[in-house]
């Protein structure tokens, strides 16, 4: 067992004027994740510590925190990879509800703005078959777990919370590229705006922090190409 030092940002908007940092010591071994450490702290030392989690296996996407300033899934990040005091803070660019819990409402609103579901006005009951090649077009972008790490990493979302952001644009691409979908036109109107694909300046940190290696930056750049095509086509429409 090794002793690890954690410095956790605590904040209760009902009582505190500003966030404060609190030091804790936890013991763990080489299998202890940041989430394990936080839960053992909560259970054994400080029941007032608030955090969000569910699956513990990088599927639900609810345990995102900043670890030494980098957005990480707590359950997929291990104490063994850090030296010295480990700083834990709530996800950047979101409003803090309490301690490590942030308000994800703006993120969810952006996701729903791009209509993240199959739109198909053909009213036939037959199954929509798909070839492996058609699946391969969008499959990479379909693995998003909505953890919001890419929003905490994206400096453009930090500057402009209206920016649709990496996950929403990736999700738009995921449906636009799906052969069973024909809702692209209505999604393009969101992507075509200054707060759509064009809010991105290709910093690329979204792809660096994505715990599912989705490469949102690539999806956003594809969306830019689509939006540029849409722009040109629109010039010829009267």
């Amino acid at each position: 067992m090794t002793e690890y030092q954690l410095r956790i940002q605590r904040y209760d908007p009902e009582q505190d004027d500003t966030p404060r940092l609190q030091r804790y010591t936890v013991s763990g071994d080489h299998t202890t994740s940041v989430l394990d450490a936080l839960l053992s702290l909560q259970q054994q030392q400080d029941p007032t510590l608030a955090l969000r989690w569910s699956c513990r296996m990088a599927i639900c996407g609810s345990c995102g925190v900043m670890v030494n300033g980098i957005p990480k899934l707590g359950c997929k990040t291990f104490l063994r990879d850090y030296n010295g005091v480990i700083d834990i803070a709530p996800l950047a660019h979101f409003a803090v509800e309490k301690d490590l819990i942030v308000d994800m409402t703006p993120f969810l609103a952006h996701l729903s703005a791009i209509q993240p579901y199959l739109i198909n006005d053909k009213d036939d009951k037959a199954p929509h078959k798909q070839t492996p090649a058609q699946l391969a077009k969008y499959q990479q972008f379909s693995n998003c777990i909505n953890c919001g790490l890419c929003y905490a990493a994206c400096p453009q979302f930090g500057l402009n919370p209206e920016f649709l952001g990496p996950a929403a644009i990736t999700l738009a691409q995921r449906y636009n590229l799906d052969s069973r979908d024909n809702g692209k036109a209505s999604r393009m109107s969101q992507l075509n705006g200054n707060n759509g694909a064009w809010g991105c300046t290709f910093v690329g940190s979204c792809s660096e922090v994505c715990p599912k290696q989705l490469d949102p930056a690539a999806a956003v750049n594809q969306a830019k190409v689509e939006s540029a095509k849409d722009f040109i086509i629109n010039l010829f429409k009267i």
């Binding site: 109107s189 969101q190 075509n192 705006g193 200054n194 759509g196 064009w198 540029a228 722009f231 629109n234």
Partner: peptide, 15 residues
């Protein structure tokens, strides 16, 4: 959901 104004960014991005 209101439709956002189309950005003129494609012109500058193409250049």
């Amino acid at each position: 959901m209101k439709t956002p104004k189309r950005s003129d960014e494609p012109i500058w991005w193409a250049l």
